[in-house]
Amino acid sequence: MKNCLACGHAQDDGRFCGKCGAPIENAAQERAATTHSMSDEQPHSQYTQTAQNTTQSNEQIELIKKQSKLYVNYFVEQLKMPSANFNVEATWKNSIISMIIYVVLTAISVFTLIKQFFSGGFGFFESIAPSFIQVFFYMSLFISLLIVISIFAIFLTAKLFSESLSFTNVISKIGNYYTLPIAIMVLSILLGLLKSFSYSTTMIYIGFALAIGIIPMFVMIKLLSNKSKNIDSFYGFIFYLVVTVILSSIVFSFMIDSAVGEVFKFFK
């Protein structure tokens, strides 16, 4: 039994359809050829898609390697001369990377110290020790908020008392100096792994003081000294300190309330 592909008429034999006259054998041959072609093209298309995915993955890996190499070169140069790119706005992406690396390293270093502290009581306090996720989240949030406060305070003070700067420019100016805090936090982690906890804690304090206090203050002073509006730069610096202290106090109170809430939640 043959079916005509043109009109659907069924007949036992014959090369042409008895109803519409369409060639039945050619239609069947075309259908078989089409099916065979599709079966041949499917493995080829799958191979092509796999090859494209592999190529894209290789390109992404090469891009990551290239960006990592560029950042390492930037890191080394900034560690040698932190003020070299003070007036260059194009480094703000590297500055953000430096800030993120500092935040992550600080959270890891603090968790290392907390873990050793709670494990020092013969395992008695290990059950109440905070997890890595908790420490990492709260420390990352706390430090990130303080960095954002520094950026905002410099942006606002520069706009009112010095020169109008974009947020990316302020990020670039602050982040260029974060190579030293990063190096200090790496040293803190190494000291913590070597169980030299007093020196590790000291390194955390030094890195924190540099990243949150000294570096933003240095950038603010440098901006006010380079260019100042009619209002004296001294009042600009006082304004910067007031804004920083008020916003930082709000963040401190928020974090302390959250920490105390977690403690009470545990003992309930």
Rank of each mutant, 00 (worst) to 15 (best):
A6I: 06
C7T: 08
C7K: 07
D12S: 06
D13V: 03
F16C: 03
P23H: 03
A27P: 09
Q29D: 01
R31A: 08
A32Y: 06
T35Q: 13
M38D: 13
E41V: 05
H44Y: 07
T50Y: 14
T55E: 14
K66N: 11
Q67E: 09
Y74N: 13
N85K: 08
N87R: 12
T91I: 09
N94T: 06
S98C: 03
I100D: 06
I101A: 08
I101F: 07
Y102I: 05
S109F: 01
F111Y: 15
F122L: 09
F122N: 13
S131D: 15
V135P: 02
L141S: 11
I143D: 12
F152P: 03
A153Y: 00
L156M: 07
K159V: 08
S162I: 10
E163Q: 14
F167S: 14
N169E: 12
N169V: 04
K173C: 07
Y177C: 09
I189F: 10
L191Y: 06
L194Q: 15
K195M: 13
K195D: 12
M203S: 05
M203V: 00
M203Y: 00
Y205M: 08
I206P: 01
A209F: 07
L210Y: 13
S228P: 10
N230I: 03
N230P: 01
Y235N: 07
I238A: 09
F239Y: 10
V242Q: 02
T244C: 06
I246Q: 10
I246T: 13
L247Y: 12
I250A: 15
A259S: 12
K268W: 03
